[in-house]
């Protein structure tokens, strides 16, 4: 009796460690999927960077598209920018200019050229919060109805585009 009791704490410890180790493998904490998958794009009415004209979520509808969160303070946004310049005739890309200065954003678009249909001014980050944005850059795939289909956190590399985003977009096109 005594000996078995002696092993109880050790067995408990091993079981707890085992459960924790297993729980760690459940999900990759750096790649959290959006909780908004399949939900309609959050409602908004905000000006666009270049002209100040007000747009709403209705203006994103029509074709499956990319929605890219960017800012002039975001160094990584410049890394993915050339790829978007290449893709802009292939797929509509909408920008969300996140927590930025609109004049700086205008200058940025002039200097690096503009791959976006338009960029939405989100100075206070309210649209970003409604989208569940963590930071810039972040890229969403939306379908023709504007519903969110996929969220990509960080730089979109050519590989990400070819292996994940492009196949998803062509699936959405043919739907």
């Amino acid at each position: 009796m005594h000996r078995t009791l002696f092993y109880v704490p050790i067995v408990c410890f091993v079981i707890i460690m085992g459960v924790l180790a297993w729980a760690f493998t459940l999900e990759d904490a750096s790649r959290l999927p959006s909780v908004l998958i399949d939900r309609p794009f959050p409602a908004f009415e905000l000006p666009i960077v270049k002209t100040g004209v007000l747009v709403t979520e209705q203006d994103l509808k029509g074709r499956p598209a990319l929605v890219n969160v960017w800012a002039t303070w975001c160094a990584n946004c410049l890394i993915e920018h050339p790829l978007f310049m290449e893709l802009k005739d292939e797929v509509p890309i909408f920008g969300i200019n996140y927590n930025d200065d609109t004049d700086k954003a205008k200058a940025w678009l002039r200097r690096h050229r503009d791959p976006y249909q338009f960029s939405i001014v989100d100075i206070e980050g309210k649209l970003a919060i409604d989208l569940g944005v963590y930071g810039a850059p972040e890229t969403y795939v939306i379908d023709a109805e504007g519903a969110i289909q996929y969220r990509h956190v960080g730089i979109v590399s050519r590989e990400d585009w070819e292996l994940t985003l492009a196949p998803l977009l062509s699936r959405l096109e043919s739907r």
Binding site: N99, G125, K126, A128, I129, V133, Y134, G135
Partner: peptide
């Protein structure tokens, strides 16, 4: 100090 934390605190 992350920007998103700042925004969420404000919210």
């Amino acid at each position: 100090d992350a920007m998103i934390a700042l925004d969420l605190r404000r919210e």
